[in-house]
Design a protein around this nucleic acid. Structure first.
Length: 490
RNA sequence: GGCGCCAUCGCCAAGUGGUAAGGCAAGGGUCUGCAAAACCCUCAUUCCCCGGUUCGAAUCCGGGUGGCGCCUCCA
């Protein structure tokens, strides 16, 4: 079922060149990927979650295509925001960072994000950061001033090649923050001099802590080497963060930092980017309390990763309904198959068309919306085989159904959805809705039993009255061969 | 002001030169005691507007209009 990586068809949009390029890993068969992870000063929001889900699917798909993937996603655990947050709570900055790393890992697990192969922390790579800064000082592209160390942008002619900005315009808009010792406004801090009560490490040019950008240069080099395949992050990191990473690393190493730069689009809320200043932030943990994690992933993947995506309750409700359709279909299929051994034999039609369409879409810069269309095609066919078998040979129909069913975990595994057993998922969802609507489960079940009794006696007026009463409570009934099933209306 | 992105059916959303995927909603049908679910059928000669290139454009070019992002911490 797994595709081979010999096919050269996978193309990826590269922010550096502003075009789609065939993926050509530096080491055959292996992709090295670095994603800028969270700064752990608070709980992550759903915008962060979208970006991390995007790269989660990138990793999953590359592995599906047969690549070995080395996936590194860092934690920024030393930073102004952490220090400020710690000051407010009266906590030690390190303790606060640790607390939010744990919170992040809980959220990530709940969302079904794969663990990266390495999740380095800035505080673990201080020696590497010092070495990198020293190299930049030695080469004369950085300078120490007042205990700080700055990168001198004017020494790096390629500066702004990623964001394609005009340096004069940047200089015009740049403001000088009091207390800094920059020679030129565009210069940025590699090292910040120690301030009272702040975490600090020794360094030849004075005690202090790393600037924001240097950490990713140090961590990516440590774990992936001097040139790796893909560097990813949110759109807003293009400038200045990724620009500065490129400047530092390439000025020090004289070879490219990464071949391909991938950037995920924003999740927007109420027609605006989510930001703390606008007060329109939805934390991931709060979203997950209300919506099924796989439904949230489905929502993230419903649009191409580079597009803006608007977050809304309606969109989430749609996604959850769709997940319910998937799982109800799977449950029906599993009931029909009944765990029987399916003997090999001729199949009806070509069961591979869906996976081929899925891979074709994913090969095109991870077009998950297109891939979802292929998944829809698979489910439509599953239902068709259940209700209206297109061939008279029953054994062949069952074989084909089983073959199609086996494709579901393959596609689902790439997208990180459909990972539950249908029954477990459907029950979990119903339980959640029962709790949310504060339904009296015993009453529901008693009414259903009474209605079944009425139906048995062909008292359809009474039966229908009870159906309507339940419907008013939001409970929908399904009469089937095995009795009456119920679900909560969404 | 500089740089960049986007505009496709009521809604969400693929499609980057060859004649409009998919989902939701809606209407009709099959099934059902009635329902529900599922299935079948219908649902954009047309892709914000104007002009151009081309045998051919939603797709390329020019000009508008509208929305958004980055330029300061930001996924």
């Amino acid at each position: 079922m797994s595709a081979t990586h010999s096919s050269p068809a996978l193309s990826v949009y590269n922010t550096l060149t502003r075009r789609k390029e065939p993926l050509a890993p530096l080491r055959p068969g292996e992709v090295r990927l670095y994603v800028c992870g969270p700064t752990v000063y608070s709980w992550v929001h759903i915008g962060n979650a979208r970006t991390f889900t995007v790269f989660d699917v990138v990793v999953r798909y590359l592995r599906h295509r047969g690549y070995r993937v080395s996936y590194v996603r860092n934690y920024t655990d030393v930073d102004d925001k952490i220090i400020n947050a710690a000051r407010e709570t009266g906590e030690d900055p390190a303790a606060l960072a640790e607390r939010f790393i744990e919170a992040f890992e809980d959220d990530a697990r709940a969302l079904g994000l794969l663990s990266p192969d390495v999740s380095p922390r800035v505080t673990e790579v201080i020696p590497e950061i010092r070495a990198l800064i020293q190299a930049l000082l030695d080469q004369g592209v950085a300078y120490a001033a007042g205990g700080d160390v700055y990168f001198q942008v004017s020494c790096w002619p390629e500066y702004a090649k990623l964001s394609r900005r005009n340096l004069d315009d940047l200089r015009a808009g740049e403001r000088v923050t009091p207390g800094e010792h920059k020679r030129e406004p565009l210069d940025f801090a590699l090292w910040k001099a120690e301030k009272p009560g702040e975490p600090a490490w020794d360094a030849p040019w004075g005690r202090g802590r790393p600037g924001w950008h240097i950490e990713c240069s140090a961590m990516s080099e440590k774990y992936l080497g001097t040139t790796f395949d893909i560097h990813g992050g949110g759109l807003d990191l293009i400038f200045p963060h990724h620009e500065n990473e490129i400047a530092q690393s390439e000025a020090a190493q004289h070879i490219p930092l990464a071949k391909v730069w991938m950037h995920a689009g924003f999740l927007e809320l109420e027609n605006a980017k989510m930001s703390k200043s606008l007060g329109n932030v939805v934390q991931l943990r709060h979203a997950l309390a209300k919506v099924d994690p796989e439904a949230l992933r489905l929502f993230f993947l419903s649009s191409h990763y580079r597009n803006q995506l608007a977050f809304s309750d309606d969109a989430l409700a749609d996604a959850e309904k769709r997940m319910e359709y998937f799982y109800e279909t799977l449950q029906r299929v599993d009931e029909r198959l009944g765990g029987r051994e399916v003997k090999p034999g001729p199949l009806h039609g070509d069961p591979d068309v869906h996976l081929r369409a899925f891979e074709q879409a994913m090969d095109d810069d991870f077009n998950t919306a297109g891939a979802l269309a292929a998944l829809s095609g698979l489910f439509a066919q599953l239902n068709e085989y259940l209700d209206k078998p297109p061939a008279p040979d029953r054994a062949m129909v069952v074989r084909t159904l089983a073959t199609l069913r086996a494709v579901v975990p393959t596609m689902g595994g790439v997208l990180g959805i459909l990972q539950s057993s249908p029954l477990a998922w459907l029950e979990r969802r119903r339980d959640r809705l029962v709790a949310q609507r504060k339904l009296d489960r015993e009453l529901v079940e008693r009414l259903i039993a009474e209605r079944s009794e009425a139906r048995k006696q062909k008292d359809f007026a009474r039966s229908d009255a009870m159906r309507n009463r339940l419907l008013e409570m939001g409970v929908e009934l399904r009469d089937g061969a095995g009795g009456t099933q119920w679900k909560v209306r969404s």
